[in-house]
Design a protein around this nucleic acid. Structure first.
Length: 243
DNA sequence: CAAATTTGACCACT
DNA sequence: AGTGGTCAAATTTG
């Protein structure tokens, strides 16, 4: 177990599986880059005073090269850090994740048929919550269900109403799933008819009608367009919970 | 009428 | 200059 307080300060979580954890995976690389930064600084401290003693046109060039080296190292760390902040999922229900979002933008993405939508936490201004997410319909679906790629940036720091929990929610496979225990997204398995068939065997004819209704509702969620109203989804899920 | 969404403009980065 | 992310005024929705 490791604490990722350095590169995931807001999460301060422990990881159960280091092989799937960004911070555990990339921390050695970040450490090595920081060593390079320290060595470059030492080298600069030794070499530049020597050049200053002997007036030379190369002094400026050498100084620039050291500057570039430091910039490269800083950017490399920044990129690793930024990548570590995001988590992406595939889901047929991009709107229902237990948080309230406000859409603030939509863009055409090059070489992509579908637009990308940008969402921020509804409580961004009231509670200074910096959580954002992007939603984009996937290009090539191997299944009949329309799937979306949802990328989350930063964690929720707001104390919002988190809405009803999904029944039998299964997290989609993700390389960084261990980092985001609070971001459970309904996967395609949620709309599997298997759960319904079990109830038919257990409870008889009345339940069969009920589970058929549930399947219709679940199919409606799975096939909903990207711009469906989130509260309509909530209403549907409340009915499912009532079942 | 307040809240949410849309959409063109703007900005940073490469 | 092209691209992606954000802002904010206009518009829509409940």
């Amino acid at each position: 177990m490791k604490l990722h307080t350095r590169y995931l300060p807001q999460a301060s979580s422990t990881c159960a599986d280091e092989s799937e954890c960004f911070a555990c995976d990339h921390q050695p690389a970040i450490n090595e880059i920081e060593k390079v930064q320290a060595l470059v600084a030492q080298l600069r401290a030794i070499i530049l005073p020597e050049y200053e003693m002997i007036p030379d046109l190369r002094l400026e060039l050498v100084s620039q090269l050291f500057g570039s080296l430091q910039d490269c190292a800083s950017k490399a760390i920044l990129e690793l850090w930024r990548y570590g902040e995001s988590t992406s999922y595939m889901t047929p229900v991009p709107h229902y994740d237990g948080h309230q979002w406000r859409k603030y933008g939509q863009k055409n993405i090059t070489n992509s048929k579908h637009q990308r939508s940008y969402y921020r936490c509804t409580y961004k201004h009231e509670q200074n919550c910096m959580a954002t997410k992007t939603v984009q319909q996937q290009e090539h679906n191997t299944t009949e269900t329309v799937m979306y790629t949802v990328v989350y940036y930063a964690h929720h720091t707001c104390k919002a109403n988190t809405g009803p929990a999904l029944p039998h929610v299964i997290e989609t496979s993700t390389p960084q799933s261990a980092m985001s225990p609070d971001r459970i997204i309904a996967s395609q398995e949620t709309v599997s008819p298997h759960t319904g068939s079990h109830k038919i065997l257990e409870n008889g004819h009345a339940t069969q009608q009920l589970t058929e209704d549930m399947q219709v509702l679940l199919k409606k969620i799975a096939c909903a367009p990207l711009d469906s109203d989130i509260w309509e989804m909530d209403a549907i899920l409340c009915r499912i919970n009532a079942c």
